[in-house]
């Protein structure tokens, strides 16, 4: 099982006990980024679950059609990649 994305090498990640919040820190000097709500779910599904169908799983979590959120979800993870917080895994299959 390969996730679609992985945290960048110079990043630390902590997930709250209830899983609702993801804290992402640039290392070694910060800052800390707080992801909650949809941001936390997208991070979790993009980096922890299998690459296959990760956007579907995000959609399921909010009970909305994947087609309605795919563009936003992809834009979000790509912005995280652009900020150096996420790296795209080798074989990314979004849906």
């Amino acid at each position: 099982m390969t996730p679609a994305f992985r945290p960048a090498a110079d990043v630390g990640v902590t997930v709250s006990r209830d899983g609702a919040t993801v804290y992402v820190a640039r290392l070694p000097a910060g800052p800390i980024l707080v992801l909650d709500g949809a941001g936390a779910v997208i991070w979790a599904e993009a980096t922890e679950g299998p690459a296959d169908g990760w956007i579907d799983r995000v959609a399921d979590a909010f009970d909305v059609p994947a087609s309605g959120i795919a563009a936003d979800a992809l834009a979000f993870v790509h912005s995280l990649c652009g900020d150096g917080l996420l790296d795209e895994a080798d074989a990314v299959r979004a849906t």
Partner: peptide, 20 residues
């Protein structure tokens, strides 16, 4: 999307728990 940078110093009421 729900993401924000935390810039304040560690203090009461900070959004990032101390243990984090």
């Amino acid at each position: 999307m729900a993401a924000r940078e935390v810039a304040e110093v560690p203090a009461a009421g900070a959004t990032v728990p101390l243990e984090v």
